[in-house]
Design a protein around this nucleic acid. Structure first.
Lengths: 213, 213
DNA sequence: GAAAAATTTTGACAAGTGTCAAGTTTTTCT
DNA sequence: AGAAAAACTTGACACTTGTCAAAATTTTTC
């Protein structure tokens, strides 16, 4: 039992096994967090969503923070390429728009619980410095993801992009977050409305216009 | 001791006294929540930020949820008129813009902890149905507050508003939230950047333009 | 000023928390 | 197969949590 010096002089297959189990437990943590939220998630609850008992968590993770950080990183890996297929496939402005809006709607429907976990963790970051670095990095990755789409829009229209990547991301994120809350509150029009809003905003953003005098 | 039937047949001054203390304790709760965040705020901690001991909280509030709801409502009353002075005073587009951006910056600097509390509570709403109604109502009030400003912008330019109130609110809220995280993380350029972003976005939104073909 | 009511404190409760150490079981290696 | 290492379970610890009832205190009422 050397969970600390584990990565030294250990056969690669051993290390893989270790990492695999870590990933498995991190997955259980994600499941639990997305179900209960950060404030109500306990280690025992996480263990119950896995095949193991609560003690094993301290065999694979230093402490609770370590586990949650691992979970967040794992979450990240899955979602930062979510729209890349859309960008690659689009042949026209309307193509890209339709594809993007469809992808937004789909992830809202299928992964709403994961999204609420993300906003919960990011809010924790406003209080707890422990998660800040990782959350900032993930946030940047999401910004880049959105920016890739916006660059493609600009390519297809020929007009230059005047709004900064971080601002566009923040706005679309705001619309997405608003939709998530409505969607989880049972509003059936939430997704349609978000699609209309995002469409309009992108059209406004990607077209040049003079600011009023 | 009739904390339930209290409002019946009680002299108004008594009821006021009761409401006053409730407000006082709710204020202590706000203080604590904005300092520690929802996940780490306990009733004993709240009591320590007041002049009383923890037991008194159950004299004035049914339970923890009741207390927090009361706090949120109290928070609301203070902030939904934040920008109304700006709207009233502005004589020109640039006037309104400058005033709004200055007000945004000031509340970001002065009340950052309260803002992070708001985003924390709103995230809780994604999991807990208890706060949903109140948070939705407050969110709507904030949307109205922003809309009053945007209507004024439209008045001053003469152009009609094409983006919906909820969409504009969501976008500005997204920019504000992003700034808050950066600001609390110690980024000195966060506020300036937000001001520039908000300015650009409003100018794009309040000017008519054709969506690209 | 005594009785009654309202207010506040104190201390306890059951339940839940993160953490960890001492076992038990399983796997790996020779 | 037997020893050693790894993986996992169990049960406990010190502490915190929301809640509440009983006692102590203050305020009001007559």
């Amino acid at each position: 039992m050397q969970k600390v010096t584990r990565l030294d002089r250990i056969s690669p297959q051993r290390a893989d096994k270790f990492a695999e189990r870590r990933a498995e437990l991190a997955e259980a943590a994600l499941q639990t967090l997305s179900e209960l939220g950060y404030a109500r998630t306990s280690l025992r609850e996480i263990a119950q969503n896995s095949e193991f008992t609560h003690g094993v968590l301290h065999y694979y993770f230093r402490d609770k923070v370590d586990l949650i950080l691992c979970s967040v990183r794992q979450y990240k890996a899955r979602c930062v390429t979510r729209y890349d297929r859309v960008t690659a496939d689009a042949k026209s402005y309307e193509d890209l728009m339709t594809g993007f809006l469809a992808a937004l709607a789909q992830t809202m429907r299928d992964e709403a619980h994961m999204h609420r976990l993300w906003y919960d963790i990011r809010s924790q970051t406003l209080f707890e410095t422990a998660f800040r670095a990782d959350v900032a990095e993930l946030d940047k990755s999401l910004e880049d993801m959105i920016w890739r789409i916006m660059r493609r829009f600009a390519e297809l229209t020929g007009e230059p992009q005047s709004v900064s990547p971080s601002a566009i991301y923040a706005m679309i994120d705001g619309l997405f977050q608003q939709c998530l809350l409505r969607h989880l509150s049972g509003d059936p029009r939430a997704i349609d409305q978000m699609q209309a809003d995002v469409r309009l905003v992108i059209s406004k953003i990607t077209s040049s216009s003079e600011p009023p005098a």
